[in-house]
Design a protein around this nucleic acid. Structure first.
Lengths: 359, 359
DNA sequence: CTGTTAGCGCATTCAA
DNA sequence: TTGAATGCGCTAACAG
């Protein structure tokens, strides 16, 4: 009976939050724009979704009306009825480090132009990581997951793909799912090659490890270090191969430790620029000049590195982010999948490295 | 006819992306768990949503079955049927600057524990800004918008509130909507007070302006500078009050310009630490020692500031982010609204400031 | 305390 | 090329 034109259940009496009145602007829905455009909902839907089977004139009219009423499809309803969510989850292990901000920057720009919404998730500790992989994919909250800088283990991969969510990676390591990154080993090799060519023999490394991660096979940069040292015939001296948690303090402590050695290194390869900054900062008060007394090289080409005159192995993080996002977009679009990409790194020569002082 | 037990419309032939087969794991839905638990969907829903009116036994049984089948309610369906979206839009003007990363960090942590999803939007240029405010609010994509570091103009506010989306701000300025920030004027006053107390008379400011913004009433830090200089009786010399675009290069250029003056300043107040870094970096090659020849003070207490021994006006960005997010959460929860907050700043005394050299 | 019923807004068959 | 009808999975009245 009430199927006629009566208000019906539309006027919900606002269950829990007894608000004054439900003054919400009447939400424009597809029915409205269909009526306004003088066509059926089916046609409206087709026009809006750019599907075939709609005359140009009709489509244009629908789009115009939709624009006028500033209508946007409800992602919930669209989703429920079988479409995609139009959302991508981006998972990062850190938010206040330059590298991840830059990645987000690149990723966001691509998603924005593809009209995809970016859902940001910060997974640090193991527990929230577990809850992330458990909860997020559930019920298809997103169409895909793009993880930045961290590995996804087997179980997590399985869970995601079971839920129909594709995985992509940026800035991590080579993975079984599509990814974009640099070659950390080559990166390390470049740094070591530079130092060795300068004539350094006693080269230290301050490697940064993530206490929360236990799955990355081996840190490529550290691997390159040990290999290069071994290959050069100098061998790896454990006392100058330090692995510390990421951060300024641990980095500074490691540097101090190196400098206090009876036979300190003449050069230091820092896992990343931010660690190198700490090393630079520690060398000076210790009475050492960079690069005269000790050379320091980092990785990233952080914006501040130029200001500190730090020699580094540069990578184009923004580009990695963009490329990874494009990987996602193109894959979702369904065309031929883009291949994973390994981006080049480059030696950025500045003033923090020089030949060792003659003894 | 096909209403019986035939595959029916479930086995969609995947319109655009002719995938191999639709091998998706059969999604468990509420109907399944209701059947399995031997109760109705309504009861199941109530049990799952922790609503009253369900016997303890029944509830437990439902929860157990749900757990066994690792079932999670579909947020889409749940929302469609009348709830909120559970999503908050966070709008930032920059992504690769420390300040914004730290803000995101704080914000994300609160949203995560409140089980809200964070949708990240980067609005830089005016055009994408316009499209953001035009597209986003429509159709309840989010329950609220938290803007970081930028103002929202009247039109944008109107548009959002019309769509039933509440606005909140973090790290910006005082606004008509709920916000959390520091007092930029007081912040500037602290810096100036410090320099004046040290005995500086000729104090420069390198202010960073955002070329894209035109709406912030007046930059509080710059205002404090001009006021303090005027109040101290030294007046404002336009030749040492520089306003440049944010960034290392503009900052360095500004510093170089100051140093090339016939009567260079003895102290520099930089809009933010990152500008101060550039200033530090520029002073040295020019043959000036910091702080002996020139004092430099920044704002933020960026992690690298400690390493560069930069005196600065510190602010707790992480806390601002958290507080702002809590503002959103509590408001959405519907209880008594939390008040806007102005967080304190502090003088972080380091080695880049000292009394001016006696002439 | 529990089940029945009716949509939420949209995409998608199928028939026209 | 279009329209009418159906259901996506769930919540919220309303009865029992």
């Amino acid at each position: 009976m009430n199927a006629g034109g009566t208000p019906g259940p539309r006027a919900r009496s606002s269950a829990k939050t007894q608000r004054q009145v439900d003054i919400r602007t009447p939400q424009v829905n597809m029915t409205d724009i269909a009526r306004e455009a003088g066509v059926s909902m089916a046609t409206t839907s087709r026009a809006l979704n750019d599907l075939p089977g709609v005359s140009a004139a009709t489509r244009e009219k629908v789009l115009r009306v939709a624009a006028e009423l500033s209508y946007v499809v409800s992602p919930e309803a669209s989703r429920l009825s079988g479409g995609s969510t139009g959302r991508i989850a981006v998972v990062v292990p850190h938010l206040s480090r330059w590298f991840f901000g830059e990645m987000l920057n690149g990723i966001e720009s691509v998603f924005r132009s593809a009209k995809l919404d970016l859902m940001l998730y910060h997974v640090g500790e193991a527990d929230n990581r577990e809850s992330f992989f458990h909860e997020l994919p559930a019920r298809r909250k997103v169409d895909a997951v793009l993880v930045v800088g961290i590995p996804v283990n087997e179980a997590e991969q399985t869970r995601l793909s079971l839920m129909g969510v594709e995985i992509f990676a940026a800035g991590g390591q080579f993975a079984s799912y599509p990814f974009v990154s640099i070659d950390d080993e080559k990166c390390g090799a470049m740094a070591l090659s530079h130092l060795l060519h300068l004539g350094h023999r006693r080269i230290a490394m301050i490697d940064a490890i993530d206490p929360n991660a236990e799955e990355w096979p081996v840190d490529g940069r550290a691997l390159a270090y040990t290999e290069a040292m071994a290959a050069s015939g100098h061998g790896v001296d454990p006392s100058i191969f330090l692995r510390v948690p990421w951060g300024p303090e641990p980095g500074a402590d490691a540097m101090a430790q190196l400098l206090s050695l009876p036979d300190p290194p003449t050069a230091v390869f820092a896992h990343s620029d931010e660690i190198a900054f700490a090393a630079l900062r520690t060398a000076r008060p210790a009475g050492l000049k960079v690069p005269e007394d000790i050379s320091i090289i980092g990785v990233d080409d952080h914006p501040i590195s130029a200001q500190l005159d730090l020699t580094t192995i540069g990578q184009d993080v923004l580009h990695q982010g963009r490329l990874a996002a494009q990987l996602v977009v193109s894959s979702l679009a369904g065309g031929t999948p883009m291949p994973s990409a390994v981006l080049p790194t480059r030696l950025v020569l500045r003033g923090s490295t020089a030949p060792p002082a003659v003894r």
